[in-house]
Amino acid sequence: MTLVKFNPKSNTSLMPGFNDVFDSILNDTFFSDRMMTKVPAANISESADHFHVELAAPGLKKEDFRLKLERDVLSISVEQVSDDQQQERNYAKREYSYSSFVRSFTLPESADQNGIEAKYTDGVLCIDIPKREEAKVQSRQIEIK
């Protein structure tokens, strides 16, 4: 009688190829793309007198965006109706189709909510949030005696 040790971490199984079928299905880009959320990437930065939010959203128009400020939460949303005017094209893969999304950002207490400005150029939504006067970095030269 021969004893064979069972190692569940090894790739060998009683039914070779059985696990490969599920791995190929679950690791397919068609399914993995659908499982990922499709929201635009955001960059958040800070300067001496402003906070800056940049949202990469190419292919949209500035009329597609809705910015809403409720309490300390800034929400950026897009609701886009897909029109199938280009029916003559057969896409093998179509990745940049934001139909709708919402991104929300909690503003710090030092943000001045009354002076928020937004502009959309070259596929990037840029939002500038000014800081309150007391929160701005103050620097001065100190005299040495």
Results as ranks from 00 to 15, higher is better:
1 M>Y: 01
1 M>D: 07
1 M>I: 01
3 L>H: 15
4 V>M: 07
6 F>T: 13
9 K>M: 05
9 K>C: 00
10 S>G: 15
10 S>T: 12
13 S>Q: 07
15 M>G: 00
15 M>W: 11
17 G>F: 06
18 F>S: 13
19 N>E: 13
19 N>M: 12
19 N>W: 08
20 D>M: 10
21 V>C: 06
21 V>W: 09
21 V>Y: 12
22 F>I: 13
24 S>L: 10
24 S>P: 00
24 S>K: 15
25 I>N: 09
26 L>G: 01
26 L>W: 04
27 N>M: 08
28 D>G: 08
29 T>Y: 06
33 D>W: 00
33 D>G: 05
33 D>K: 13
34 R>D: 05
34 R>A: 14
34 R>V: 08
37 T>F: 06
37 T>Q: 12
40 P>H: 05
40 P>W: 06
41 A>P: 01
43 N>K: 13
45 S>M: 11
47 S>R: 07
48 A>Y: 11
48 A>T: 15
48 A>P: 01
49 D>H: 11
50 H>Q: 14
50 H>D: 11
50 H>V: 10
52 H>Q: 08
53 V>C: 02
54 E>H: 03
55 L>S: 03
56 A>H: 13
57 A>W: 04
58 P>F: 04
58 P>Y: 05
59 G>R: 06
59 G>T: 09
60 L>S: 02
61 K>S: 12
62 K>C: 00
64 D>S: 14
65 F>V: 09
66 R>I: 12
66 R>D: 10
66 R>A: 15
70 E>Q: 15
70 E>F: 11
70 E>A: 15
70 E>P: 02
70 E>G: 08
71 R>H: 11
72 D>W: 02
72 D>C: 03
73 V>D: 01
77 S>G: 11
79 E>F: 07
79 E>V: 11
80 Q>K: 15
81 V>I: 12
81 V>C: 00
82 S>V: 14
83 D>V: 13
86 Q>R: 10
86 Q>W: 05
87 Q>C: 03
89 R>M: 14
90 N>M: 10
93 K>F: 04
93 K>C: 01
94 R>I: 06
96 Y>M: 13
96 Y>K: 09
96 Y>G: 06
98 Y>L: 15
101 F>Q: 02
102 V>I: 15
103 R>C: 00
104 S>E: 13
104 S>N: 09
106 T>Q: 12
107 L>A: 07
108 P>C: 08
108 P>D: 05
110 S>W: 10
111 A>I: 03
113 Q>C: 01
114 N>C: 00
115 G>T: 03
115 G>W: 04
116 I>A: 02
117 E>W: 00
118 A>Y: 02
119 K>Q: 14
119 K>E: 13
120 Y>K: 02
120 Y>F: 12
121 T>G: 00
122 D>Y: 06
126 C>P: 00
127 I>S: 03
130 P>Q: 02
131 K>W: 09
131 K>H: 08
132 R>N: 10
133 E>V: 14
134 E>L: 09
134 E>Y: 08
135 A>D: 07
136 K>W: 01
138 Q>K: 15
140 R>G: 10
141 Q>F: 15
142 I>E: 03
144 I>P: 01
145 K>I: 05
